[in-house]
Amino acid sequence: MTALLPRLFRPDVLPLAELMALCLDGQLYRVGDSFATLDTPDSAALRAAAFASSAPSHVIADRGTAAWIHGARAAPSHRPQVCVDARSRGGRIPPEFDGRQTTLSRGDVQLIDEARVTSPARTALDLLCVDGRFSPDAAAQVLYLLDRAGVPVSSIKSRMRGSSRTNARRYLARADQLSARARSVLRPFPGPTRSSR
């Protein structure tokens, strides 16, 4: 009779030192703050389950955490990034989370495994509108998320024009840069040139 192993191991199941040793031995790999066996496929559902195992049920994974769950980045944020809808009354956000209140529209949130996560298009919008420097890595994540959502950059620009966000002009300039980058990435390969003989 074979025993069924859990899909994810957390430090409340085995001590962290043992889990890390199993990683070094090549028997487990890290999934956020959890660990999975090598025969467990890495997927959005697995990453969402890892997030849900340590997050309160009323919070929604957003920004960097949502980008990680959707596969746009290799590792989650150092502090899980979450939000709550400003229109709903929910519980407080624990201090170990990078949390915020925001207004969410229909279609902005989806359920993946046990976790509520901002959709790829909403995650792209949130990453585009972060304060501070907009790195090439962040731009690549936004383009990946838009591609996954099947949404062109122009639709994000339209949504930003109708928004009351402060710094909207700066974010629209970023979207213009993304449009140019997307065109250069998607330009067809010119093919081999014929050499004259």
Rank of each mutant, 00 (worst) to 15 (best):
M1N: 09
T2K: 13
L5F: 12
P6S: 11
V13P: 00
V13K: 03
L14G: 03
L14D: 03
E18V: 12
L19P: 04
M20F: 01
D25V: 01
G26I: 03
Q27A: 12
Y29Q: 04
R30K: 15
V31T: 08
F35I: 01
A36D: 01
L38N: 09
D39S: 13
T40N: 00
D42T: 01
S43T: 05
L46K: 00
A48S: 11
A48E: 04
A49G: 14
F51D: 03
F51M: 03
S53T: 00
S53N: 00
P56W: 11
S57L: 10
I60P: 08
D62I: 03
R63S: 12
G64L: 11
G64A: 13
G64W: 05
T65G: 00
W68G: 02
I69N: 00
H70N: 05
H70R: 05
A74K: 09
A75T: 14
A75L: 14
P76Q: 07
P80F: 09
V84K: 08
S88N: 12
R92M: 05
R92E: 06
I93C: 05
P95C: 04
E96R: 15
F97R: 07
D98M: 08
R100F: 01
T102Q: 09
L104T: 10
G107N: 10
G107E: 07
V109R: 10
L111Q: 13
L111T: 12
I112V: 15
I112C: 06
A115V: 03
V117G: 08
V117Y: 09
P120A: 15
A121I: 00
T123H: 09
A124K: 11
L125I: 01
L128G: 05
L128A: 04
V130A: 12
D131I: 07
F134T: 02
S135H: 11
P136M: 07
D137T: 10
A140E: 14
A140V: 03
Y144A: 13
L146E: 08
D147N: 14
S154P: 00
K157G: 14
M160Q: 07
R161M: 12
R165Q: 10
R165E: 07
R165C: 01
N167W: 09
A168D: 01
A175E: 04
D176R: 13
D176A: 15
D176N: 14
Q177R: 15
Q177Y: 06
L178W: 08
S179N: 07
A182T: 06
V185S: 04
F189S: 09
F189W: 13
R194G: 07
S196Q: 08
S196A: 12
